[in-house]
Computed example of a mutant assay.
Amino acid sequence: MSHPVPPSSLSSSPAPTRVVVGLSGGVDSAVSAYLLKQQGYEVVGIFMKNWEDDDNDEFCSSRQDFIDAASVADVLGIEIEHVNFAAEYKDRVFAEFLREYQSGRTPNPDVLCNAEIKFKAFLDHAMRLGAEKIATGHYARVRLNEATGRHELLKGLDPLKDQSYFLHRLNQAQLSKTLFPVGELEKTEVRRIAEEIGLPNARKKDSTGICFIGERPFRDFLNRYISKEPGPIKDSRGRVLGQHVGLSFYTLGQRQGLGIGGVKEKGAQRGAGDHAPWFVARKDIPSNTLWAVQGHDHPWLQYDSLAADNASWTAGVPPQPGLYGVKTRYRQADAPTQFSAATEAGFSLAFGDHPQWAVTPGQSAVLYDGDVCLGGGVIAAGQARGGPKA
């Protein structure tokens, strides 16, 4: 049984002898391996174990994921290797994750994991196995720009599944060796193919979050590594609303888990009243104060600009100053933004008539030129309306 392989970089050059596919146990990487094999590649699967501390924990599914990946490899008739990158993950990803939370920021470990593990440690390992390319089940695309000679990272064609945001730190060397076989497909088509060829994980639920947290309450997990330092929760008028358990346990825009209510803030927006929802708006580290505002449209949650550092550009150089699209968090529509010239330290963005909601230090600001992901940086600070920098 065969299926047409979507037009992409897969068929733009002679097929390399060997492609190593990261088999996660999920349906996307499984169908990726199938499509590559149909294209005539020699496909080898690798299962990456990135976390060990909770190996027997109900919330970490790595054992079951490996069983699923091995079952897929058996159905497809390909080899699979189990590789342990837990030490690299703890050193390169988890340590930074904790440092960011302890500094009051909200990091995105998936971005760092892609840059440091899946497209660095895994890529290096695959090259040692004689691979010419690696492949993953990410919903993104790679295209060689004939005019510039550079490889471009493009959004996946399924707008609900596009994962280019998490891949924006990939460089030219990484992009030139990477294939995203399902990037041209809708998720529904991926599941249809998996069902049709009898993959055992065709109906497996998509994973949410990262393995070292899994489905457990996030605050419970952080409790293991970060000490609690309670302090006041205040509104924009300085009234004390309650107590927080530690600034590291909250993120800007957070609505649930504040434990406050019944106090109406003067001038509250949308649904104003005693029961209008409260949102985290500021984290003041020096005074250990958490600031909350009432109403989704409160000015303190509307940002006119941001500054980002630790920039990374897929082309190796920053784009020219101008108007681009930006995502300041995953699953948001591209917003128009004015990009100022980047420096070694970072760059700044101005949103003009399109303020962004709850711009969060530690998250990524990712720039787009249409479907092309240009790269981005880590949000260092944002300027909200009617309030100090976050």
Rank of each mutant, 00 (worst) to 15 (best):
G352V: 04
V366W: 00
A384C: 14
G377N: 12
R385P: 03
A380E: 15
G352Y: 05
G352S: 08
G382N: 12
Q363M: 15
G375E: 07
D353E: 10
L367K: 01
P355K: 03
D353Q: 06
I379L: 05
I379C: 00
G382R: 13
Q383D: 12
G376A: 10
P355N: 03
G377A: 11
G382Y: 13
W357F: 13
R385S: 06
Q363A: 12
H354D: 12
A380G: 13
V372A: 08
Q383R: 14
Y368V: 03
W357G: 00
C373P: 05
V359H: 04
S364K: 03
P355S: 06
G387T: 08
D371T: 11
G382E: 14
L367S: 00
D353W: 00
V378D: 09
H354L: 06
A365F: 01
C373Y: 04
A380M: 13
I379S: 03
A380L: 15
V378S: 11
V359T: 05
G362S: 08
A358M: 09
G376L: 10
G375Y: 05
R385K: 13
G375P: 06
S364P: 08
D371S: 12
V378P: 04
V359L: 00
Y368C: 03
A380H: 15
T360C: 12
I379N: 00
G362V: 05
H354K: 13
A358G: 06
A365V: 00
D369N: 01
C373F: 07
G387Y: 11
P361M: 06
G352P: 02
A365W: 03
R385D: 05
S364C: 10
G376N: 11
Q356G: 09
L374A: 08
D371N: 11
L374V: 08
Q363G: 04
G382A: 15
G387N: 10
I379G: 03
A365Q: 02
G382V: 13
A380F: 14
A358C: 08
V372C: 07
G386R: 01
S364M: 13
G382D: 13
P361K: 05
Q383E: 14
G377C: 12
G377H: 11
Q383I: 10
P355R: 05
V378M: 14
P355V: 04
Y368T: 01
G362F: 03
R385Y: 09
G370D: 04
A384W: 07
H354T: 13
H354S: 12
Q363S: 14
V366L: 03
D369T: 03
T360N: 09
A384I: 11
A381Q: 15
G382M: 14
Q363T: 14
G377T: 12
V372P: 01
G377M: 11
P355H: 05
A384F: 11
D353Y: 02
V378H: 05
A381H: 14
G352A: 11
D371K: 10
V372S: 08
T360P: 08
V372E: 06
V378R: 13
G387A: 15
H354W: 12
D371M: 09
G376C: 11
